[in-house]
């Protein structure tokens, strides 16, 4: 009897997150879809102007969509070399003592609240870059990419490092046995073996960057114009939702439009996560671990 209760209890717990997920999806669709009565999906996705409070309102999210993509792509350019590079160092070169110091440090980077990163970007990095590069304004896509890149580095590093450490010792020993040096082993054996694990790390880092809100709200500048250069101020989707939700009258067009943005954001990260999942499955099968 007792055992059955406990079993049920944990079953409920396990399914709780499924319930939350389904609930969130339902709310996103229910609150987001009504906007498509006013604008078509095409106008919404590819419309070039976002004037939600103007009369007549315009709900084209292309500038916001592009802003999110630019900023996350920029962040990837920073966090992939940094994250994967430090994972390789930790796994291949670092002495156990170094590793026991460095790995927790990288993980601390992940635990810093995003508003602290945002503050750092706004108060220190943006004015610095503005002076250094003679920019018209330091709050721009480039600065946001830089800060997001630093923020996503621990995610990439720690997942990539896990992937590398799962590569069986036998693989490397076999490689050394046929006379390959360390570099050849790394490039031809270890990295390909951990490849899909590393791509999982990169995709999850990307999904973290695209969903990040506070930092881009503070650092990206907030201009809802289609970015023409990396040094233009931009307004990523998350920043638009965060700064506009407070004013949007509940049940109005603007409100539904913001939910529709959230829906699109959710779909993007959802696709990323599925790809990451598929990649990591393939990786486990390749190494002969349980699929």
């Amino acid at each position: 009897m007792k055992e059955r209760i406990i079993k049920w209890f944990f079953t409920v717990l396990a399914f709780a997150s499924l319930v939350f997920l389904v609930g969130i999806i339902i709310v996103l669709f229910k609150e987001g879809m009504p906007i498509f009565k006013t604008v078509s999906v095409q106008e919404f996705l590819f419309g070039k102007s976002w004037y939600p409070t103007f009369v007549p309102a315009e709900f084209g999210i292309l500038p916001l969509l592009l802003a999110s993509l630019w900023v996350s792509m920029g962040a990837m350019l920073i966090c992939v070399p940094l994250g994967v590079g430090s994972a390789l160092y930790l796994n291949e070169i670092a002495s156990p003592r170094q590793k026991s110091l460095l790995k927790p440090l990288v993980e601390i980077l992940a635990s810093i609240p995003s508003i602290v990163y945002g503050f750092f970007g706004m108060v220190i990095l943006a004015p610095f870059l503005q002076d250094l590069l003679h920019l018209p304004i330091g709050l721009c896509a480039f600065t946001a990419s830089l800060v997001l890149g630093i923020m996503a580095t621990p995610t990439v590093c720690s997942i990539a490092e896990d992937a590398l450490s799962y590569v069986p010792r036998a693989f490397k020993e076999a490689s050394f046995a046929v006379g390959a040096n360390r570099w050849q082993t790394l490039v031809k054996v270890t990295i390909p073996a951990a490849g899909s694990g590393i791509s999982t790390a990169i995709i999850l880092g990307m999904s973290r960057a695209i969903g990040e809100t506070m930092t881009v709200l503070m650092v990206a500048g907030g201009a809802a114009a289609i970015p023409r250069s990396f040094f233009d101020p931009v307004r990523p989707m998350t920043a638009a939702i965060a700064s506009e939700m407070g004013e949007a009258p509940m049940g109005g067009e603007h409100y539904h439009a913001l939910f529709a943005i959230a829906l699109i954001l959710f779909l993007i990260t959802f696709v990323f996560n599925i790809i990451a999942e598929i990649a990591s499955r393939r990786y486990r099968i390749k190494l002969g671990l349980s699929g």
């Binding site: 004037y51 304004i137 907030g222 201009a223 114009a225 700064s243």
Partner: peptide, 10 residues
Amino acid sequence: KPRADALLQA
């Protein structure tokens, strides 16, 4: 309409 590339501050 205000210009789209104006920076918005809170």
